[in-house]
């Protein structure tokens, strides 16, 4: 349901949320921990830095950190950056720039309730509430030698 980019963005933020507030995390480490291709991650981080969700510091001791505590970052702020369909007047079919009750597309009325449910979840959930989501794939257990 969420685009891959939005999922990656949330995973990247979860890596930052798991670190102490002041600590800067290298992009390379984030890519490894969140399992995101490095180049893809850097583009996502640029968008999130521009939106004020993360702070980027250059230099040898540089890296990324959250610009706010995780309990103050709502998922809608992140997903809204990458998935246009959660925007208030977005059209499900993408055929028009704005879709509303007064000027609907054919999918609007049915889609409205789905979007309302999704937006309700994303607005009501903060990053710290999903910090228990395991974003690291479990490694296969080593075989015991008998």
């Amino acid at each position: 349901m969420l685009s891959t980019t939005a999922q990656y963005a949330l995973r990247a933020l979860l890596v930052l949320a798991s670190e102490p507030a002041e600590r800067l995390v290298l992009g390379k480490d984030m890519a490894r921990l969140a399992q995101i291709p490095g180049n893809y991650l850097s583009k996502i981080m640029i968008t999130m830095a521009a939106a004020g969700l993360v702070e980027a510091t250059r230099g040898s001791n540089g890296g990324y950190r959250l610009s706010r505590p995780a309990d103050q970052i709502h998922l809608i702020e992140v997903v809204g950056l990458f998935d246009r369909q959660v925007a208030p007047k977005s059209c499900f079919l993408g055929v028009r720039t704005e879709c509303s009750d007064c000027d609907p597309c054919t999918a609007h009325m049915a889609w409205k309730s789905v979007k309302a449910e999704l937006v309700h979840f994303l607005e009501g959930t903060t990053l710290d509430k999903i910090s228990g989501v395991p974003f690291k794939r479990a490694r296969p257990a080593k075989r015991k030698t008998v």
Partner: peptide, 15 residues
């Protein structure tokens, strides 16, 4: 279930 499971489940069902 993961931490986001119950809230997400509802969205998924509606979708």
């Amino acid at each position: 279930q993961c931490a986001a499971h119950s809230g997400w489940q509802e969205c998924r069902d509606v979708f």
